[in-house]
Design a protein around this nucleic acid. Structure first.
Lengths: 209, 209, 209, 209
DNA sequence: TATGAATGAGCGTTCATTCAT
DNA sequence: CATGAATGAACGCTCATTCAT
């Protein structure tokens, strides 16, 4: 099947076209306003054609949701951490996360707020044992352990703190997205305070001694 | 228009009926499952009647969203803080907030995530000066000031920290709502760690001395 | 609610219009070619209006199917049997049945061949105990008992014979409907032979003595 | 066109493949659930290929309907009648017919109820002269003649009776198929009564002497 | 004040069929 | 010979909304 080279590419292009159109609609009007007909209209094809390339609407929605999240994950993962000190690393990681999320707000929101099981599987991080499955949590865990290396910190506590850091960051990001009228300076102040101070404070375990 | 006394009351009652029905549906099935028909069916009137009292569906949705948030605000406000120590007060306030939010998840999510300007006006708290307008931020500010009374803490910094506490709490709450399969114990661990440790750590300003 | 007199009539008229249009389509194109859109087109209303008067398409289909069958039942029931002799009565009843069925072929076919549980409940007659529930079977039973009054005929056997008479008649009717090109004379010959001879032969129990 | 030898065979094979697949679907899901797509999917070809071999879906449906009937006909024909007595033969033939029909209910129903002229040509048996064209009717005729050899039975009357026997059997079979919830025992009772008693009674001409 | 008739737009989906390649 | 891209029509159904009464 050497012939299929071009065909395959064309198929991929069409799928891409449909997906990106769907993503565009989702980004402008929200994920639940995506409709097969709207996609078809925009790409100037008949609605039926969509079913040549995808089983149903759900498949499309799931793909673009996961993609959105993957993009963010990728953005975070690809940001190489240069610092040596775990504190600096923690700050950098948080910054990466927040920046990535704020750069693709719709995708981020949709992914984080979707209750679809398939998406949940990707985006969830609050469950016990998340540090074994979710790279971000794992990375945070390592930092936190290192930061608290003088204390004998349980793994489970470490995970808990990591989870709460990401949850907090998510809270800030979502609120910044929703309150999109917040002035540039105020945004900066909030983000920087969170990244440079809050995160460190959360990470540092306090001993009651 | 002398007649209006009783009339007005009746109008208000009808509006109330519609709104509370809409709120009930929203709370049970989610805000985007609210439909004029469903409301009309439940109150045993015709769908058209709704348009006598409200311009359109959006108006209703907006109002019940705001109300939902008010309920939460009220729940938080009415929880009387008994403790003397500002640390204890902070913890209690956070607990109240989280409890109130988790008790009305649909309302909370809808309110916090709505981008409608009217709702935003109610729920926003990230803007500069929020401590003057938003009682929760104000209350948090007071606590934080008290906790850090040994340090000379700027008001704006205080506000910033308060905002980040609420944003973080919101992040945790939303994630808990979305990841509704999280086990009871894990939920507790997260919430308690956040309430009893994290919040205090965030509140306590670190001097680089 | 005296006012409602006219309204109610109008509603009934509209329901009637929809049902009769549906029945017309069913009669011309078959029951499974009935569609909400087709009905709406024919009555020059929008498809949605149908849902004002009926819950869904199934309701309409069920009603017209049952009606079709009821018409036949009624036709049979209203044909008053004048004869005294049970043989004559049996012949007359069979004739009534066949005539009624042949006069509304589409309704008859649709009703008898529908596998929808609701319709089955109406049209079924092969089950044990049918002579207690189905008037036609009951009437046939009485005749057959009378015809065989010299023999000690079990009730269950009587029922069986009645069921087989109706099933046979149905077979003839359906085949005549399907083979609609059959010439007039041949039809007559078949029907008359069945009514006047076959039925009597089936009814008369043979003793192996 | 010397090539055609192999070609033709290949074409026939492909047609066969399509037809048998269609028949399989019809037999499992009912004739009106057959779709070009489903066929294409099952044989792992594209839907369009179907149109190389057949003009349209109807052609396929017609062919498989006729074939379905042929299968039944074959089943009946191939059941060798061993008995000597014409009565026994009649009973056996009826039994064969009913068994064959009940073993392939979908095919039988579809064939017997189809109004397509091509199918009608195959399945019809009510027309005058059927005993010359339809082997089943012919066979029945022979039996009936034999059974009534003491009477001088007209050929046309013989045909009439044969036609009514098959029509009656068809009625019973169809009703048993439609009322598929009928219990096993009741089915047996009905079928046996029909085969062993009714058919004989119908076959035996009564002289009014 | 309140109704219910009616619409029109939209939804996801399935299907038979055509046609250039 | 066979493909698969593409269409257009149809399906059942839901919804927000309007309007005469």
């Amino acid at each position: 099947m050497v012939i299929s080279g071009r065909r395959e590419r064309e198929i991929e292009e069409m799928k891409e076209l449909i997906l990106s159109t769907a993503a565009a609609i989702a980004s402008l009007e929200g994920y639940d306003k995506v409709s097969v007909r709207k996609i078809a209209n925009k790409i100037e094809y008949s609605p039926s054609i969509v079913y040549h390339y995808f089983a149903d609407k759900d498949e499309i929605i799931n793909i673009i949701m996961q993609r959105g999240y993957q993009k963010i994950i990728l953005a975070i993962a690809s940001a190489n951490i240069k610092s040596d000190s775990p504190e600096e690393q923690l700050i950098e990681m948080t910054r990466n996360y927040i920046n990535a999320a704020l750069e693709m707000p719709e995708e981020y929101m949709a992914a984080q707020l979707s209750k679809s099981p398939r998406t949940i599987k990707q985006t969830s991080f609050l469950f016990e044992g998340a540090s074994d499955e979710k790279p971000i949590i794992a990375a945070l865990c390592r930092c936190i352990k290192e930061i608290n290396k003088d204390v004998d910190l349980e793994d489970s506590k470490c995970e808990l703190i990591s989870q709460l850091i990401i949850a907090s960051a998510m809270g800030l990001v979502i609120k910044l997205i929703v309150e999109k009228e917040t002035g540039y300076e105020q945004r900066n102040r909030l983000v920087e305070c969170f990244e440079n101070e809050i995160v460190l404070k959360i990470a540092k375990v306090v001993t009651n001694k």
